[in-house]
Design a protein around this nucleic acid. Sequence first.
RNA 1: GAGGUAGUAGCUCAGUUGGUUAGAGCGUCGGAUUGUGGCUCCGAAGGUCGGGGGUUCGAGCCCCCUCUAUCUCCCCA
Length: 451
Amino acid sequence: MSLIEPRTLKGFRDFLPAKMVQREKLMETAKRVYRRYGFLPIDTPALEYLEILTGKGSEETDRQMYHFVDAGGRAVGMRFDLTVPLARFAAQHINELGTPFKRYHIAPVWRGENPQDGRFREFVQCDFDTIGTTGVVSDIETALVIHELLLEIGIDQFRIRINNRQILSGLLESLDLKDKSTSVLRALDKLDKVGPEGVGKELAQAGISSEQSDKIFQFAGVQGTHDEVLSKLSSMLRSSELASQGIERLSIVAGALRAAGVPASRFEIDVSIARGLDYYTGIIFETTLLELPRIGSVCSGGRYDNLAGLFTKQQLPGIGASLGLDRLLAALEKLDRFQESPRAADVFIPLFDPDRMNDYFALAALVRSVGISAEVYPEPKKLGQQLKYADQRGFLVALIAGARELDQGLVQIKDLRTQTATEVAWKNNSEGFLAALASILGLQNMLSQSN
RNA sequence: GAGGUAGUAGCUCAGUUGGUUAGAGCGUCGGAUUGUGGCUCCGAAGGUCGGGGGUUCGAGCCCCCUCUAUCUCCCCA
């Protein structure tokens, strides 16, 4: 009979332990930072009624959504992001939750687009959002979380680019281009990718007059310190109430970030970023790695004051951002920031004498009882081969005991890094044995802490 | 979805103008007189040359299709 070729779907991937350990580490970092700011975890189904998911992001997102009719005849879709499910979740449960409600959600999402470097059809997002407040405090907090998150992951060469949709809307209003907003924003968004000429061409194609185009470039070309940018924008868009509000809010955010100790170089007011998702209404964020700008934004989001309005008459404004775990990981890999291969456990116990298996399990249980990880080798191979395995997998210590040692209640603690071994009694001396082991592992403090 | 580039062992690659049984390094597994690893030496396994079709006496090499990766458009984490 012919074999089935083992393979995975385009844009979908397997993860081997070395990579999965990195992913888990990243997720743990995200959780830790989110919880530090008072966000709590939730989860929602991968599958939703199609009507819940469609028409919320943009036409493009609808096109990229995986959807099908289930066995019960229901039109269902796989979630495209975690924000739209949150909107449904909030509309459904907000009476039990109360506001403001802060949650984080780390889970896979699916997009049927063409895979590229750092872009997959299945990938994990680490979202955090605040529902139920329009206060500028949550705008500021969102920026602070993004900043702290990246630092804690171990990245310092990054920049958070900030804009406000109200400013863009104000600009478009003042230029009488409201009906062409999508194409204008889309063109503007590509500024640092295709340059001014490219954007100019695209604007011309969209039927934008050269006077309007000039004003757009004048607007996008504003540079300087945060305060300079804001005051220039403010004089340019004085006539627009909407834009002025947006500028005022950005100025509060910028001041707060400085006060919180965020270096000015880490964030930038960039009026060219627009973001494709239609639901954003206020501040928007995009985070790029300075060493690898081409991979795109690794953490972005913004304020969406009307999202839950599609599901409830209650006013449920929100703001949040999402760390693209898989994209960030692809970037870290590209930058060669992967740490050494992971160690399964600290302590290795060779199956030296198969007749003494029970002793090895007793030893392993003793070691694990104080939180030190231990692995018993599953096959009675020659000791040299077992140690070779231990060496290759990076174990720190081996506990070697044959009949000779076991008969005397002893075990050899061998430091695999220095190749030095000491014999210690372990039967009726678990404290002394564990202390010796901990000291070799360099964990003296850990034992006293756990006791 | 459209276009450009690529696809040879687990990994990185070699493979002459199409010409017999497709190679190397690393990795994996085994061994070097039966209780102690990282070095060395020896050996083995592992490839329908991404898949399918075609041209030819003969295809890893040429042509078409397809799949996958990567890039651009598009969009985004």
